Measured scan of single mutants.
Amino acid sequence: KEMRNAYWEIALLPNLNNQQKRAFIRSLYDDPSQSANLLAEAKKLNDAQA
């Protein structure tokens, strides 16, 4: 469930391009235990690109 939530949050971040989203989501599938960390990194990048 945590992975699914992280997937959708990443997919809906407005300032990431599709390539960036795909990279984060690929990492999510590679290591679901890192969901919270990956989401935090994606949000950080999203904010930096705002």
Rank of each mutant, 00 (worst) to 15 (best):
L38N: 03
A11N: 15
N37W: 13
A23S: 14
E2P: 05
D47I: 15
E2S: 05
D31G: 03
Y29D: 03
L39I: 09
Q20L: 03
K44L: 05
E9Q: 12
S27M: 14
E9T: 06
N18K: 12
A36R: 13
N15S: 05
W8D: 08
L12T: 12
L12F: 13
W8A: 07
M3N: 08
L28K: 00
A36H: 13
R22V: 09
P14M: 07
Q49R: 06
K43L: 08
N17T: 08
R26L: 11
R4F: 13
M3V: 12
D30E: 14
D31E: 09
S27P: 02
N18I: 11
R26G: 04
E9M: 15
F24V: 02
W8Y: 13
W8C: 05
L28G: 01
N46P: 00
L12M: 10
L16G: 00
N18A: 09
N37H: 09
A11E: 06
K43G: 01
S27W: 14
D47A: 15
L28R: 01
A23E: 07
R26K: 10
Y29V: 08
I25E: 02
K44M: 13
E41W: 11
R4G: 10
K1F: 13
W8I: 11
Q19V: 12
R4Y: 15
Q34R: 13
R26Y: 11
E9V: 13
D31Y: 10
L45K: 07
Q49S: 09
I25N: 02
L45N: 02
N5Y: 15
Y7M: 12
E41M: 13
L39S: 04
A36T: 12
P14G: 07
N15H: 11
N18H: 13
N46R: 01
I10S: 00
Q19S: 14
Y7C: 15
S33P: 04
A50N: 13
E9R: 15
A6E: 05
M3R: 06
Q49A: 12
P14Y: 04
I10T: 01
N37V: 12
E9F: 10
K43F: 07
W8G: 04
N37G: 06
P32N: 04
L16A: 00
I10E: 00
A48F: 15
L28A: 02
R22M: 09
L13D: 01
W8L: 13
K1C: 05
D47Y: 11
E2A: 02
R22W: 11
K21W: 02
Q49T: 07
R22P: 01
Q49V: 11
Q20A: 03
K44G: 07
N17P: 02
K44Q: 10
N15G: 03
A11C: 09
K21F: 03
R26N: 04
Q49G: 05
L45A: 06
Q34G: 05
K21A: 02
E2D: 14
Y29Q: 08
A40I: 14
D31K: 14
K1T: 11
L13R: 01
N46A: 05
L39T: 05
P32Y: 08
L13E: 00
